[in-house]
């Protein structure tokens, strides 16, 4: 971190860090526009207050037409805008899948590289406590499979701001996931603008016995578990990829080289999760580094249910992470 001493101890909310990144980009480049449903008021908060400073044409409310405004960004980016879309909730990507996966992700490739499409689609996503099945999805694994979308999923306010800046500056479609429950977490964030390169992970805690790769809201859980297990004499390293496409496999493999053990915690359904992909890749590329079979921690393969005890049964818990760590150490 290269923060100036005057600002190093300033602590703000994750959602404010996203907003600072957006504000910085709206200021830096007048071709940046933010659109979405009620972005003027902003339910989740990332765009709140921006319309007062940048006006209703640059922070523009859309009708509830996800497929269309996700697709409009493709045409708009192709001819010179840098649209940023607040999709509000992760599930809403499903409404716009053609325009996201067939159009935004493919136009550059299909055209033989004739065009670049600087677009950011950001959304809150993941379980947030009885939001039920249609407001708790984390569709990042599905989108990792699309090819042509970069995918960002920060875990701290500091990363949230720096990755927002990089996402908007990037000349490709970038999907930015804000795990719902992280929005209200606080952390130290410099006031000035800075960027974190896409595709560079971060070791959030150093350790020697086991590598725990954790994504988004799984990072604070993994850190909490690591602290508890430290008391039992287990030294846990927590690696946060921060970007899922491109994925920093070098960092993950480097960590596994030192620990020889791998657990991947993903705040998503197990089948074809990011955890599955990471475990498969490490196993292929680093089989000899592994002292035991890697473990995945992810949701049961069902939708996220409403009733609190049901939801708790499905999503990842600290004790799931503890069990997985114990399993790879056994």
């Amino acid at each position: 971190m290269n923060a100036q001493s005057t600002t190093t101890d300033r602590s703000i909310y994750f959602i404010e860090a996203m907003r600072e990144g957006l504000r910085g980009m709206l200021t830096e480049d007048e071709n940046v526009v933010v659109i979405g449903e009620d972005v003027g008021r902003s339910v989740i908060g990332a765009t709140r207050g921006l319309v007062e400073d940048f006006g209703p044409m640059r922070v523009r409310n859309t009708p509830i037409s996800e497929a269309t405004f996700v697709g409009m960004c493709v045409g708009a980016a192709a001819v010179g805008l840098r649209p940023v879309v607040d999709l509000m909730v992760g599930s809403f990507f499903y409404v716009a899948m053609d325009q996201l996966a067939d159009q935004a992700a493919k136009l550059r490739y299909m055209s033989g590289g004739q065009v670049s499409l600087p677009i950011v689609y950001f959304t809150a996503s993941g379980p947030s406590g009885s939001a039920a099945a249609q407001h708790s999805e984390n569709p990042h694994p599905m989108l990792m499979n699309v090819a042509g979308l970069k995918i960002v999923m920060p875990s701290t306010p500091y990363d949230a701001k720096g990755l927002m800046v990089s996402a908007v500056r990037d000349n490709n479609p970038v999907v930015y996931f804000q795990d719902f429950v992280l929005g209200g977490t606080r952390g130290v964030v410099p006031e000035e603008l800075y960027s974190i390169p896409l595709g560079v992970g971060d070791i959030k805690r150093h350790g020697t016995d086991v590598t725990v790769v954790a994504i988004g809201a799984a990072v604070p859980k993994a850190l909490r578990v690591a602290e508890v297990m430290e008391k039992d004499g287990v030294s846990v390293e927590v690696v946060d990829p921060r970007t899922l496409v491109p994925m920093d496999y070098d960092l993950i493999l480097e960590s596994v080289t030192r620990t020889g053990r791998l657990v991947v915690v993903d705040n998503a359904r197990l089948t074809c999760s990011a955890a599955s992909e990471i475990v498969a890749t490490v196993t292929e590329r680093g089989f000899d580094l592994l002292k035991s079979a890697p473990q995945r921690v992810a949701w049961a393969d069902v939708p996220v249910p409403f009733s609190p005890p049901l939801e708790e049964r499905v999503v990842i818990s600290d004790s799931d992470i503890v069990s997985a760590i114990r399993a790879v150490l056994a």
Partner: peptide
Amino acid sequence: GGIPIGTGSAWAD
């Protein structure tokens, strides 16, 4: 598929 895209280029213009 092209309908929103052309609507979007018109928006940008």
